[in-house]
């Protein structure tokens, strides 16, 4: 066993200072190193979600983002997808607090006339095995809204008098999911289309 170093006030303060300083410098360095890749990973995730919810495009939607104001002083980020300069779809990053756990985020793509093209879950903390059935890789539940135009398709779960089949045993998640789409749809139809 190594002999313990004596603890005097000066060497205690000095040791703690050196340990913390080395730690902070190393972390700062690692932070700079990973900053680029973290940004790239986030960007890739967004672009992938946009590609999933809008038709093929040849612009870079994340370079043309604009914000849509919604009721509670918040706003949603929109990504217009264009092909040969013509608007083919708009991906809107939307969210809901009506889910089972905390706020979750989804990306929803609208055709220029407001028809829902597709959806993609961005992040959620819903219950594994129940609420996470809204994920594409866990089932095709979420595909039922694809191709529907909310003008004649009631964005509410059947339990609440709408047209959407809820996930069995995960009514809250289902409500949240349609609530998020509804939020984006209303904002989009209120002049959120950028031709």
């Amino acid at each position: 066993m190594a002999s313990k170093k004596e603890s005097t006030f000066i060497n205690m303060v000095l040791t703690l200072f050196i340990v913390t300083a080395v730690a902070a410098t190393t972390l700062g360095y690692i932070y700079e190193l990973t900053k680029g890749p973290i940004e790239a990973a986030k960007r890739k995730k967004t672009l992938k979600a946009i590609a999933n919810v809008t038709p093929a495009f040849d612009n870079i939607p994340s370079d043309e983002i604009y914000m849509l104001a919604i009721e509670n002083d918040d706003s949603l980020v929109c990504y217009p997808s264009r092909k040969d300069g013509k608007l083919v779809g708009t991906a809107i990053s939307t969210y809901t607090d009506a889910g089972f756990t905390e706020r979750f985020y989804i990306m929803v793509g609208f055709a220029p006339d407001g028809t829902i093209i597709n959806t993609a879950i961005l992040s959620h903390k819903e219950t594994p095995g129940l609420g996470d059935k809204m994920e594409k890789k866990k089932g095709n539940w979420s595909n039922q809204v694809n191709g529907k135009n909310p003008a004649k398709y009631k964005l509410k779960v059947k339990k609440d008098g709408g047209d959407v089949d809820g996930i069995t045993a995960a009514t809250f998640t289902s409500r949240g999911f349609v609530d998020a789409i509804d939020l984006a749809y209303k904002a989009y139809m209120k002049g959120g289309k950028h031709e």
Binding site: T20, A23, A24, L27, G28, Y31
Partner: peptide, 8 residues
């Protein structure tokens, strides 16, 4: 802008 120091 040093949120990476959060854990420490």
């Amino acid at each position: 802008g040093i949120t990476y120091m959060q854990t420490i």
